[in-house]
């Protein structure tokens, strides 16, 4: 087993994006402790990686059926199932130990993330309902909530920031599912674009994307900071909704890929701005 195989098991780019939301939430909440940052880094990196590896382990049958994922470490055989279980379990439980030694609230978000992603999404709803990402998305929102909770506990500001991630996830998931529609159809995974069609799914992403600026403005109203982030979120969400509407009228694989590529920068920019405004004490 090479280091590259382990990297393939834990999806470093996805882990990094979610960690950005955790750091930014922590800074936006007023957190400044270097020790907190160390704990947040270790706990979130281990938690997200471990949960991702557990997800890959439980979905290795699906991954083997789809050309896009068939070269992943488990279906390709470069990592054995037993090794994947050992890696995922040790990472996840280590994250719980590290987080709980510092902050009960941070550890709780890690536990809830695992419940949402593994027990609810992967084990139960993903193979049953096309709306699975709505429940599974809770896991993606947990790093943002964890970062905030580490600094300030469970207060409305943190819940709103994590809800921004939750609202962003349908755009992130359903457009890539649209791009690889045949793969998901082949594996009989009932994603919304497969069951109801790409246009129908795009309509839902318009609603969820439109919720992002609403949540950003609500955050500003409650916390009295983050106006720049709210303005940028409004502009970017408007562009995304316009492009989603264009896609809905004339769906194409290229347009779906373009929407997917737009999703990650959108969330990253909004969270970085929230962090900067929190850090500098800007309104």
């Amino acid at each position: 087993m090479r280091p590259g195989d382990i990297a393939g098991l834990i999806k470093p780019s996805q882990t990094l994006l979610l960690m950005v939301t955790a750091y930014c939430s922590y800074l936006a909440a007023g957190g400044r402790s270097p020790l907190d940052v160390v704990v947040l880094t270790a706990a979130e990196a281990l938690a997200i990686s471990g949960t991702t590896a557990a997800n890959m382990y439980l979905e290795r049958d699906i991954d083997a059926l789809m050309p896009r994922t068939s070269r992943r470490p488990l279906p390709s055989g470069s990592v054995s199932p037993a090794a994947a279980v050992a890696i995922s379990t040790s990472m996840f439980l280590s994250s719980v130990v590290v987080a709980s030694l510092r902050s009960g609230a941070l550890a709780l978000t890690i536990l809830v993330g695992f419940i949402s992603d593994i027990l609810i999404y992967t084990n139960i709803v993903k193979r049953v309902t096309p709306y699975s990402v709505v429940l599974g998305g809770i896991a993606g929102a947990m790093p943002a909530l964890g970062g905030w909770a580490l600094a300030e506990g469970f207060t409305p500001g943190g819940i709103l920031l994590s809800a921004v991630v939750l609202a962003w996830i349908p755009m992130h998931i359903w457009f890539i599912a649209t791009y690889y529609l045949d793969d998901y159809r082949m594996a009989a995974v009932p994603m919304l674009p497969v069951i109801r069609g790409p246009s129908y799914a795009a309509r839902y992403t318009e609603y969820s994307t439109a919720a992002i600026p609403a949540l950003a403005w609500a955050y500003y109203a409650i916390e009295h900071r983050g106006v720049l982030a709210a303005i940028v979120a409004t502009v970017l969400a408007a562009v995304a909704v316009k492009r989603a509407e264009d896609f809905r009228r004339t769906p194409s694989r290229d347009a779906a890929l373009g929407m997917f590529k737009m999703a990650s920068p959108l969330i990253a920019v909004v969270f970085v701005l929230e962090a900067i405004e929190g850090l500098l004490g800007l309104p």
Binding site: L93, V96, V97, S100, L101, L108, I115
Partner: peptide, 11 residues
């Protein structure tokens, strides 16, 4: 950590 890890291992 005892309670949190118990919960995590149970998951």
């Amino acid at each position: 950590p005892l309670l949190a890890t118990s919960a995590g291992a149970l998951y």
